[in-house]
Design a protein around this nucleic acid. Structure first.
Length: 594
RNA sequence: GCGCCUGUAGCUCAGCUGGAUAGAGCGCACGCCUCCGAAGCGUGAGGUCGCAGGUUCGAAUCCUGCCAGGCGCGCCA
């Protein structure tokens, strides 16, 4: 049962999301058109608004008429014309035009531009947020790396994408919680303890064989040295019965340090979790056993070869999966099922799991288990994060935790700063493999899209400061005479501003922040273009001496623009910059080649 | 062998719930600062959307089969 949507006329959604309002107008018109020609009342249609490439085609184009041509057995252009005729008088859009082969082209009315700016200024920090998903709760599980070592650049991508999805969900109205899951009961943690034990003994001058499946990275040696510095050379028993107790000690010590580093890294990125959920708690509380019972009662399991199997093939898997091995231990899958049983019991409307693409086979398995438990698997979304490589000086390095040396997330943040790291991770779709271009990320030049967007924001600040400093009289207001903003460049800016709430909702539905990043780049381009138009044509300059009302209107537009860029950046977790440092300060080329 | 992801301009990538001449950034070639920051803007060259079929009024987008790259295929996690 989905909860009813809460209608709240005070949020920016109802007043600010032009796209939704235009779609509503067309929906009404289409219904009236269908009625007028006696079509069956259940005739299905959908209003889909596209951004046309060609500005002659207006601000939006709808293709309903083309889609209705077949069911109505009518020429699409006739349907388009019919729908256009049914659009009721309004102050939002100009009269729509039917265009061959059957598009409906929509152009915003000039007054809608004024409305957009007013929505932004009255919305202020809330502009861009909407109530589309208000009343719904979402749980975003991400990172979930075990504390067996520092976070690497792959985890970084997961962390940033997960956090941004959470932020975008929140902006689209969801009540969001972030969760980090630890597999702290498995062999990975045991291997960590064994690894530290070996390194500690080495540090004490003993010759030991490094454990199979252990973690060879240098960071374990560092931890071992730290440990030795604290406790000195303590006798470590080699007797089997003593090993487990020792191991627990080494394990806890290493996990403690690694966890601290992981949290510090996430903290540096501005990522905070609402819950840290541990696998061992599922065992302790009996939830693992309970979910096995539930699955058995549902008839989804069977015994074979001394093991307990789950019939995942009933739900599209290629083979059934073992839940409990013949040695009596559960597989890693079982506590994960219990974990998701727990998530569903907590009553979320949407569950998002952000995980590495190398775990994709897990998706079918887990969804099968969720279905077997009779939960709505549609609520469970997976975002698969593809591999990250780093390129520097034209060379690529491939990174793997088990191979030892690699770039950690911490090193990346230290060198570039949290915001640039965050931004660069977002410039590719999560499902595409990405090459993190270190040279470009370092560059404080026009090539770097991060600075390009920040420059647009800084330029707005600079203009407003200039207006303050000169005698151009203007006042902060939420009202604007949009008829003064009729230049094509101005209309382009206004229209672009109005898209923010819709972009955010689209990103939420796609579980992909890239659309918002692209939007901000386009918005920056639109503004830079407008600004530069003033260089060609002085009448388009924003601050015009002696033209108070015009300057007033243009500066109000700039305030709305600054607000929109700032809000877009903040939704992504980035901090808008008011003033860019002069470039000459860092012209000396630093070479890190020695 | 099977499954998932990817293949779009020289390079890195958008677009892929089908729509009007296929986009951006970088690189390349030109042009624009007595003037609100040129960290910018404008113009141009550059593409058989991996290949071959199919569905459709219409396919980069959907379906099928190939080809290439990545990842994963355990009573490991």
């Amino acid at each position: 049962m989905s909860k009813p949507r809460i209608e709240s006329p005070e949020t920016s959604n109802s007043s600010g999301n032009l796209k939704e309002r235009v779609a509503a107008l067309l929906t009404q018109a289409t219904k009236r058109y269908l009625d007028s020609r006696g079509a069956p009342p259940d005739t299905a249609f959908e209003i889909h608004l596209d951004l046309p490439r060609n500005t002659d085609h207006g601000d939006w184009a709808a293709n309903v008429a083309l889609r209705l041509a077949k069911p109505l057995k009518t020429k699409p252009i006739e349907i388009a014309q019919g729908i256009c005729n049914q659009v009721e008088a309004n102050d939002l859009i100009e009269t729509p035009e039917a265009a061959a082969p059957g598009f409906i082209n929509i152009r915003l009315a000039a007054s809608a531009g004024g409305e957009t700016i007013e929505s932004i200024l009255t919305g202020a920090e809330a502009w861009g947020r909407s109530d589309t998903f208000t009343g719904q709760r979402a749980l975003i599980e991400f990172v979930s790396a075990n504390p067996t070592g520092p976070l690497h650049i792959g985890h970084g991508r997961n962390a940033i994408v997960g956090d941004c999805i959470a932020r975008i969900y929140a902006a689209a109205g969801y009540e969001v919680e972030r969760e980090y899951y630890f597999n702290d009961a498995g062999v990975q943690m045991r291997n960590l303890g064994l690894s530290l034990r070996a390194r500690y003994l080495e540090a004490c001058g003993r010759e030991v064989e490094f454990p199979e499946g252990g973690y060879p990275g240098d960071y374990i040696i560092t931890i071992a040295e730290k440990l030795k510095g604290e406790i000195g050379e303590v006798k470590v028993s080699e007797a089997d019965e003593a090993l487990e107790a020792d191991l627990q000690y080494f394990n806890d010590y290493a996990a403690g340090i690694n966890t601290g580093e992981i949290r510090a890294g996430l903290d540096a990125l501005g990522i905070a979790f609402d819950h840290y959920f541990s696998e061992s708690s599922l065992h302790d509380s009996g939830k693992v056993e309970r979910v096995l019972d539930r699955l058995a009662n549902a008839g989804a399991t069977y015994e074979e070869d001394g093991a307990l199997w789950l019939r995942t093939t009933d739900h599209g898997d290629e083979k059934d999966r073992v839940l409990r091995k013949s040695d009596g231990n559960t597989t890693y899958l079982t506590p994960d099922i219990a974990y998701h049983e727990d998530k569903f019991a907590r009553g979320y409307d949407r569950l998002v799991n952000v995980l590495g693409a190398d775990h994709h086979s897990y998706v079918v398995r887990l969804k099968a288990a969720v279905r077997a438990l009779e939960h709505d698997a549609e609520k469970l979304h997976f975002v698969l994060i593809q591999m990250v490589r780093v390129s520097e000086g034209g060379e690529e390095q491939r990174l793997g935790k088990r191979k030892g040396g690699y770039t950690t997330l911490g090193e990346l943040i230290e060198e570039l700063g949290a915001d640039i790291v965050r931004f660069f991770y977002l410039t590719r779709s999560p499902g595409s493999q990405m090459v993190f271009d270190l040279d470009l990320a370092r560059a404080r030049t026009m090539d770097n899209p991060y600075w390009y967007i920040q420059y647009a924001h800084a330029r707005c600040c600079s203009l407003l400061a200039k207006a303050e400093a000169t005698r151009s009289a203007w006042r902060e207001t939420t009202a604007v005479d949009a008829t003064l903003l009729g230049a094509p460049e101005e209309k382009a800016v206004i229209f672009a501003l109005g898209r923010l709430p819709g972009v955010v909702v689209d990103c939420a539905q796609a579980d992909d922040p890239l659309g918002l990043v692209s939007y901000l780049r386009e918005l920056a381009t639109t503004f830079h273009s407008y600004f530069s138009a003033g260089n060609r044509d002085a009448t388009l300059r924003i601050i015009r001496e002696g033209e108070g009302e015009l300057t007033q209107a243009r500066l109000t537009l700039i305030i709305a623009l600054r607000q929109t860029i700032a809000n877009g950046l903040r939704i992504l977790g980035l901090t808008p910059i008011d003033r860019l440092e002069s470039r000459s300060a860092e012209t000396d080329t630093t070479d890190g080649n020695d």
